[in-house]
């Protein structure tokens, strides 16, 4: 079924949202990705991915209270859902299996 696979960027965003627990909103996610992953990403891309993840059911969203530093605009806060958590775990397991299957000689040189 489409939607159970996680793209690389989707996975990172999902992980960052989990990291930022309860304070994950667009701009902060962008800044966090730029700091932690050392890559630049535009705000529109972040929103795009968040929306995609929400459509897949991996994220829940709700509006915060209005905040003065944003010109009185509310933040759209994201939290990882149960199925989001499962998708992350599945992805980690696949990687772990693949890592453990690498023969020692392969990386020796």
């Amino acid at each position: 079924m489409k939607g159970t696979q996680l793209g690389e960027l989707e996975e990172i965003v999902l992980l960052v949202v989990a990291n930022l627990y309860d304070n994950a909103y667009g701009l902060l996610i962008k800044l966090e990705i730029e700091e932690k992953c050392n890559r630049s990403i535009t705000i529109s891309t972040v929103h795009n991915v968040l929306q995609r993840l929400a459509d897949k059911g991996f994220l829940d969203s709700r509006y915060s209270d209005p905040t003065p530093e944003r010109g009185g605009k509310r933040k759209l806060l994201f939290t990882v859902t149960k199925s989001g958590q499962q998708a992350l775990e599945k992805s980690r397991d696949i990687r772990a299996t693949l890592w453990s299957g690498i023969p020692k000689v392969a990386f020796d040189k």
Binding site: Y25, G26, L27, K30, I43, H47, Q51, Y63, T67, E69, R70, G71, K73, R74, K75, L76
Partner: peptide
């Protein structure tokens, strides 16, 4: 309904 979040983010980034 989505616009408010986007506008807020854009503005914060701008500041």
């Amino acid at each position: 309904e989505l616009w408010e979040a986007i506008e807020g983010d854009l503005y914060e980034l701008f500041l």
